[in-house]
Simulated scan of single mutants.
Amino acid sequence: MLQRYALLQRISVMALKPHRLHNLADTTSLGVAKRPRTMATESSSSSMKDAFSQYADYLNNQNDKRERIVKASRDITMNSKKVIFQVHRMSKHNREEVLQKAEKDLAAVTDQFVARLVKELQGTDFWKLRRAYSPGIQEYVEAATFCKFCRTGTLLNLDEMNATLLPLSDPSLEPLQINVLDYLLGLADLTGELMRLAIGRISDGEVEFAENICKFVREIYRELTLVVPFMDDSNDMKTKMDTMLQSVMKIENACFSVHVRGSEYMPLLGSEDPTSFLLAVPSVDI
Rank of each mutant, 00 (worst) to 15 (best):
M1L: 08
Q3C: 00
Y5C: 04
S12D: 10
V13K: 04
V13Q: 02
R20H: 05
L21A: 05
L30G: 06
L30A: 15
K34I: 02
R35H: 08
P36A: 13
P36K: 12
T38M: 11
T38N: 13
A40P: 02
A40R: 09
T41V: 03
Q54A: 13
L59S: 06
N61P: 02
N63E: 15
D64Q: 11
R66M: 09
V70T: 09
K71A: 11
I76C: 07
T77F: 00
M78Q: 12
N79I: 01
I84D: 07
F85G: 10
F85S: 13
R89S: 14
R89H: 12
M90V: 03
M90Q: 14
K92Q: 08
H93R: 12
E96R: 05
L99H: 00
L99C: 00
E103W: 05
K104H: 05
L106A: 07
A107I: 06
A115P: 03
R116W: 05
K119T: 06
E120Q: 04
W127I: 13
P135G: 02
G136Y: 07
I137P: 13
E139Q: 15
E139W: 07
L158A: 05
E160Q: 13
N162S: 12
A163V: 00
T164L: 11
L165K: 02
L166G: 00
P167V: 05
S169T: 03
D170R: 12
S172H: 01
I178W: 06
I178G: 04
L187T: 12
D189F: 08
E193Y: 09
E193C: 00
E193A: 01
M195E: 11
I199F: 09
R201F: 03
R201H: 00
G205K: 11
V207H: 10
A210Q: 08
E211A: 02
E211N: 08
I213V: 15
K215D: 13
K215L: 14
R218A: 14
E219F: 11
Y221F: 08
E223T: 12
L226P: 00
L226A: 11
V228K: 02
F230D: 11
D232W: 06
D233K: 12
K238P: 01
K240H: 02
K240A: 00
M241R: 04
L245T: 07
K250P: 10
I251Q: 03
N253T: 14
V258E: 04
V260R: 14
R261D: 13
S263H: 12
S263D: 15
M266W: 01
L268I: 05
G270P: 05
E272F: 05
T275N: 10
F277T: 06
F277A: 15
L279W: 06
D285W: 06
